[in-house]
Amino acid sequence: MTTHQTAMIMMGLAVVLALAHVLGRLARRCGQPAVLGEILAGILLGPTLFHGALSDAVFPTDVRPMLSTLGNLGVALFMFLVGLELDHRLLRGNKRAAVGVSVGSIVCSFGLGAVLAVWLWNAHPVGDRLGFVLFLGAAMSITAFPVLARILTDRGIQHTRVGALAMASAAAGDVVAWLLLAAVLTFTGSQSSWQVLLVLPYAVAMVAVVRPLLGRYLTAREQRAEDEVQSEPLAQRAGDEQQHR
Rank of each mutant, 00 (worst) to 15 (best):
V101Y: 05
G100V: 01
N72S: 11
H124E: 10
D62L: 03
R129D: 01
G74R: 15
A123Y: 04
L112I: 14
P65Y: 11
L116K: 04
V115T: 08
V126Y: 10
L67C: 10
H51N: 10
T61W: 04
L152R: 06
L136D: 00
H51L: 01
A41I: 05
M79L: 15
S109W: 03
G156L: 02
L67V: 09
L36G: 02
V35Y: 04
H88K: 13
L91D: 06
R96N: 06
T69L: 13
K95R: 13
I151T: 11
L148Y: 03
L134V: 00
A117L: 11
Q32M: 08
V35N: 03
L77A: 15
F78S: 11
L136G: 00
L91C: 08
Q32L: 15
A57E: 03
W121N: 09
H51Q: 13
T143Y: 00
G37N: 05
G156S: 13
V115I: 12
F135P: 01
L54S: 07
C108M: 10
R64I: 03
S109T: 14
D154A: 11
G74S: 15
L77Q: 06
P33T: 03
A149R: 01
R28D: 04
L17W: 12
V16G: 00
D56V: 01
I157S: 09
F132S: 10
V15D: 02
L116G: 15
L77H: 08
A98L: 01
M66A: 13
D128A: 11
G74E: 09
R29I: 02
G93F: 00
L19W: 08
L19K: 08
K95S: 07
L81H: 08
L81A: 14
H21C: 08
P33N: 02
V133L: 09
G42H: 10
E85N: 08
Q158A: 15
R28P: 01
G100T: 00
A149G: 06
A123R: 13
F50W: 04
L36A: 08
I142R: 09
V126C: 10
L67R: 12
H124T: 15
G93V: 00
P146L: 03
T61K: 09
L112Q: 02
V15Q: 07
V15K: 02
V58S: 05
L73I: 14
A123H: 08
D56E: 14
A14S: 10
F59L: 11
M66S: 14
G156T: 05
S105N: 14
A27D: 05
D56G: 06
H51M: 08
N122I: 11
A123F: 13
V147P: 00
A34N: 06
A149C: 15
R155F: 11
P65H: 05
L23V: 10
L36Y: 03
V147T: 07
A27H: 00
A138L: 02
I39Y: 04
L45A: 05
G111T: 11
